[in-house]
């Protein structure tokens, strides 16, 4: 029996008068990969950012691990320790070395011992092939390397869910493959629960257990992954897939 880790009910978000998200409803099971697809400006990133409280949504309810989320800043600080996020622009802290970037939150937020976290960080760095860069500063790394460090930094917090917001969008095509491989491994080997916003269609088709197709802030389709890419339910989704040359 699949365990429900995240449930969203009637989520709405406004910017001024403009409604960015319309009545969003979905559930996600532990260990599954949910992919958010849709044209630019359809609300994918906004939705993702609502899930860890970076956006203050106007109305609606989020349940995390069966508990209703009380959307106060204090409470989000706790939840963000369990919901990791990786951004398109990497956003490593330029004033800290690679190791310091990784240690910061586990040490200061979770108060874990330095020896433990360092050991784990080294293991994770090895896994993404960057163990020799522990003392480097972000400015010395390429985009792809920075993004791998950003993933390691999020993983070091032992998240229950990982959010990926177009993490390959500003990378060289050669770098993209490496990042996607790390994400596939996370799903297959670690059974990490993930929510991914991406424009990499063949990757999405391979990894998605479930697809939400959004347009103008509405969910047009909530379809199992395999089905979405072979026979989408809506005409709009078919057109979208065609436009992406899929």
């Amino acid at each position: 029996m699949a365990e429900e880790i995240l449930k969203v009910e009637h989520l709405n978000q406004f910017y001024g008068d403009w409604q960015a998200l319309h009545d969003i409803n979905f559930t996600l099971n532990r260990g599954e990969v949910l992919t958010l697809l849709g044209p630019s400006g359809s609300g994918k990133s906004t939705l993702l950012r609502c899930l860890n409280g970076l956006e203050n949504y106007k109305s609606g309810t989020i349940y995390f691990e069966g508990k209703k989320v009380d959307p106060t800043e204090k409470n989000w600080q706790n939840i963000r320790q369990k919901i990791g996020m990786v951004f398109q622009s990497y956003d490593l802290f330029p004033n800290l070395t690679v190791m310091e970037n990784i240690l910061l939150a586990p040490r200061k937020v979770q108060k874990r011992s330095e020896v433990d976290v360092k050991q784990e960080a080294t293991k994770l760095l090895k896994r993404v092939g960057l163990e020799k860069y522990v003392n480097a500063y972000p400015r010395e790394l390429s985009g792809g390397q920075k993004q791998r460090i950003a993933i390691v930094r999020a993983l070091a917090m032992h998240p229950e869910i990982m959010l990926f917001d177009e993490v390959t969008a500003s990378l060289d095509p050669e770098m993209v493959r490496g990042i996607l491989k790390i994400m596939s491994d996370l799903s297959e080997k670690d059974h990490m629960t993930m929510i991914i916003v991406t424009h990499e269609m063949s990757f999405a088709a391979k990894i998605a257990d479930q697809v939400l197709f959004l347009e103008d802030g509405k969910i047009l389709e909530d379809t199992p992954g395999k089905e979405f890419f072979t026979k989408p339910k809506t005409k709009r989704a078919q057109e979208f897939l065609d436009s992406m040359n899929f």
Binding site: L54, Q77, F87, D91, F93, N95, L104, K108, V109, M157
Partner: peptide, 25 residues
């Protein structure tokens, strides 16, 4: 702004965000 958000996304509180991320930069 993305520096602030990536700090918050790691669970840092306001004090920690200023102390370790924003003020040094």
């Amino acid at each position: 702004k993305s520096q602030r958000e990536s700090g918050l996304a790691l669970g840092l509180n306001k004090m920690q965000l200023f102390r370790y991320v924003l003020l040094p930069q």
